[in-house]
Design a protein around this nucleic acid. Structure first.
Lengths: 274, 274
DNA sequence: CCTTGACTCTCAAGCCGCTTGAGACTGCAT
DNA sequence: ATGCAGTCTCAAGCGGCTTGAGAGTCAAGG
């Protein structure tokens, strides 16, 4: 029989951990002095403790270990448990490696530019949503504003409630300075089902816009004359972090310029890991 | 100005997290209604929030992020911070990959044997310690007991306090069934400095026994006639988990057989990752 | 036999980044 | 006026311990 400190030295597990295992019933001392409360451990508890440590090293929680040790589990259940554990750890590893890539990219950027980036790129998932939208080829990028205004002119009289910031989707595969294939989109509640007629035979169509599992996003603060800076920052980030473009980009018009406040626009670009 | 729920939808950060960031002063709402306590956020807080998210994705703690955002940090400090972060994550990844290997090995073993192993292998570091030891070539493995007894016969009369379980080190490179080069070792306090004479001109020498950074260990319960099973289990584990032998093995005699209780012996084998 | 000093006990709080829940209030649409 | 969804504050919980306070115990040395 060993006092907790000696047993701790033998098994190289901290005294506090041994006490904790005793508290949660994972490894009860062989004997407890009922007067002093001193815990006494026996060497034939070593195998159990070693199992605990080994299973802990496999990433199981103490609760799972307790179940494994106390109830007896069928080999099938065992296999299932460890398979699950395997995929869990696999995911963890991938996540950490992605994180590592991000840190490396950030480091490179700091070396190059000597400072942190102005605007941060963040990854998000874009949920599917119910929208009204109109798609059209416009001659110049500035005409986006016109298209939005014309749409508003139809939406307002119809009394449609817009439930989120309007945005446009750029459907062109590559960047085009003219004749852009754009879609103006207005989030609405799912009960809006009708189409609205616009001038020139165009239609604002109600439909479910599919979600995007992963999009790299950046918030652009300021006028549209400088929005290409945000685009190039975003593109750099995407390349440096090992992603590739995976669909048409969006510009979300969170707020128009108003008085002293600059316009705030979010660029969202669907991506996927290389 | 947006209420917390709307802002949450825009930035895709849970309401509870936004409140938490406000609590710890990481992202204060643009305005707080002093009567109702409602938090109101403005869109030009988005850049700051995005920086928070991006830095969090790099694995920084919220406290570090707070320092980064509030104080301005020199580029050198920045670089240092991210380099540190990089090595941290690197270690994490390696650890997880080792864990993955262990789980895979365990799975293979379950497939083969249909159950969990009897004795678990655990990795430990063995600390350097002050010892008395005698090294000798013995004809048969059984003579280890004789050597230990002879040593005790010298130690006892000298009044030496043994501060841990005695063990032997097997110095042979490969396994030998005869003429083994063994060292019997007795942990003592550092103030024991003298040598003790034994029969046959042998000496128990006081010295500092070097530690071992990593050793695979298994506890063998029972007689020495079956100890080779534990050895082979240990060897299997070492191979299956991607380690290699890295020094002479030890057998620690934790407790001799006594009455009903079987002998308890720990096998420790220094290893290193392949 | 008494004193030291090392050890042990219990209980509570802390870590991190939130999440969950209770109980009370507010804001907006019918 | 009445719902009902949203918001508030405060407290506790998660995992696997660690740390600390305050009190009691053990073994060796004088």
């Amino acid at each position: 029989m060993f006092k907790i400190g000696d047993f701790s030295k033998i098994c190289r597990v901290p005294v506090s951990a041994l006490r904790y295992y005793a508290d949660i019933g994972l490894l009860e001392p062989a004997q407890i002095d009922s007067f002093t409360g001193y815990r006494y451990y026996s060497l034939n508890q070593l195998p159990r403790l070693n199992r605990i440590i080994a299973l802990k090293d496999l990433g199981l929680t103490l609760e799972e270990i307790g179940r494994l040790l106390n109830e007896d589990v069928s080999p099938e259940e065992l296999r299932g448990m460890f398979r699950l554990q395997q995929t869990k750890i696999q995911q963890q590893v991938e996540e950490e490696q992605a994180r590592l890539a991000r840190v490396a990219a950030r480091l490179k950027q700091i070396e190059l530019e000597g400072k942190m980036p102005q605007q941060e790129v963040v990854l998000k998932t874009l949920e599917a949503q119910h929208v009204l939208s109109v798609r059209q080829v416009i001659a110049k990028p500035q005409h986006v504003a016109t298209l939005l205004e014309e749409s508003f002119d139809v939406l307002m009289p119809a009394g449609v409630q817009i439930t989120g910031a309007p945005f446009v989707i750029f459907h062109d595969e590559e960047f085009k300075p003219a004749d852009l294939d754009v879609e103006a989109v207005f989030p609405v509640t799912p009960n809006v089902q009708s189409h609205l007629e616009m001038a020139g035979g165009r239609q604002l169509k109600a439909h479910e816009l599919a979600g995007v599992p992963l999009a790299a996003c950046v918030v652009h603060v300021g006028g549209f004359d400088k929005i290409h800076e945000s685009y190039s920052g975003l593109a750099n980030w995407i390349e440096a972090n090992g992603y590739r473009f995976a669909g048409p980009s969006r510009e979300v018009y969170l707020s128009p310029p108003e008085g002293d406040n600059p316009a705030i626009t979010e660029i969202q670009w669907p991506v996927e890991k290389i």
